[in-house]
Amino acid sequence: MLNISVIIPVYNAAQFLEKSVQSALHFDEVKEILLIEDKSTDNSLEICEKLASGNSRIKLFQHHDKGNHGAGASRNLGIEKATGNFIAFLDADDYYLPNRFEADKEIFRDPAIDGVFGAIGVEYLTEKGRQEFQAKFKDIPLTTVNYPAEGEEVFRGLLSLTPKIFGTFFHLNALTIKKSAIEKYNLRFNENLRVHQDSDFNIKLSYFCHLKSGIIDKAVAIRGVHDNNRITKIIQYSPEYNERQFILWQSLYHWAVTNNLPSEYRKRIYLSFKSFDLSQQKGLRKYFNIVWEVIKNYEILRTRYRYNYYKS
């Protein structure tokens, strides 16, 4: 049987937290639930303390200074404190479905598999949240990939290097990973990224580790969409969106160079990074640099980020 540590970063999630925790307690495979409280301004800490005192499988941690450090740092603290052989993640306003670890139990029988990922669904908790989510993501019922894949195909798919469109994202809520694989490659969340730490982590994880898709045609967890979801507040291709994407791809490019990834991968990551770099420039300098970049790397016009070039 799997022995899983579920890591839940907690920040201002008082109204959702108990449901989230209860959904993880449902599974015998879950050895422990690590609540990483990140200096909430509501009564989340009080609820965490109540939950931890009432069940030995629930453990409460805060940062060394009891300050607010963000979701990435909170997940990193959870990884350090986890004692299970496997790690799973859950956002405090989301919850697992009964089939969450159904595929994992079978797939992990193969010792070559380091991690399994699946699909998540959506539940609209407020009308404003629904409107913002659908304005950005349309009425997409699942966050998932388009076809089963494993190994290097997953990494190539996330970089849009596969012949078929793989999809650009799988959610942490549907990822289970061996702790030994995380430790082997010293993988952690980039704490400088206040958003998109998950995308950064998933891409790096899929390069070093042998991941395999599990249940991708139906949800294994549910994302709760409400008024305070940060990711839906950012309008696509807005200056804020471009800036945050730039920081993400800058992080990935630095990682690709530092780890001397094969040239095909470094180039694709560079093109994505450069696209968002150019999107933040203005005036004649911007258009001069666009022309110069196209002369050097005409393939940049084929990336899914080419739209950014022409936004002022």
Rank of each mutant, 00 (worst) to 15 (best):
M1I: 10
L2Q: 10
I8W: 07
F16L: 00
E18P: 08
S20R: 04
V21M: 08
E32D: 00
T41S: 11
S44C: 09
I47V: 14
C48K: 02
R57E: 02
Q62Y: 03
H63W: 01
H64Q: 11
K66H: 15
G67P: 02
N68M: 01
H69Q: 00
E80S: 10
L90Q: 11
Y95F: 15
Y96P: 02
P98E: 06
R100H: 10
D104A: 15
E106L: 11
Y124R: 12
G129N: 07
Q131P: 00
I140P: 01
P141D: 05
L142Y: 01
V145H: 11
P148A: 10
E150M: 06
R156I: 02
L159S: 05
S160P: 05
L161G: 08
T162M: 05
H171T: 13
L172R: 01
K184H: 12
K184C: 02
F189L: 00
N190E: 05
E191H: 00
N192C: 07
R194N: 03
V195T: 13
H196R: 13
S199A: 10
Y207A: 00
Y207M: 04
Y207G: 08
F208C: 08
G214N: 13
D217I: 04
D217C: 12
V220I: 15
T232K: 12
I235W: 10
I235N: 13
I235T: 15
Y237A: 04
N242R: 08
E243D: 06
H254W: 08
A256P: 05
L261Q: 12
R266V: 09
R268A: 06
S272L: 13
F276N: 11
G283H: 12
R285L: 13
Y287S: 14
Y287C: 08
F288Q: 15
F288A: 15
N289G: 07
I295T: 05
K296C: 07
Y298H: 14
T303K: 03
R304Q: 07
R306Q: 02
Y307T: 14
Y310K: 06
S312D: 14
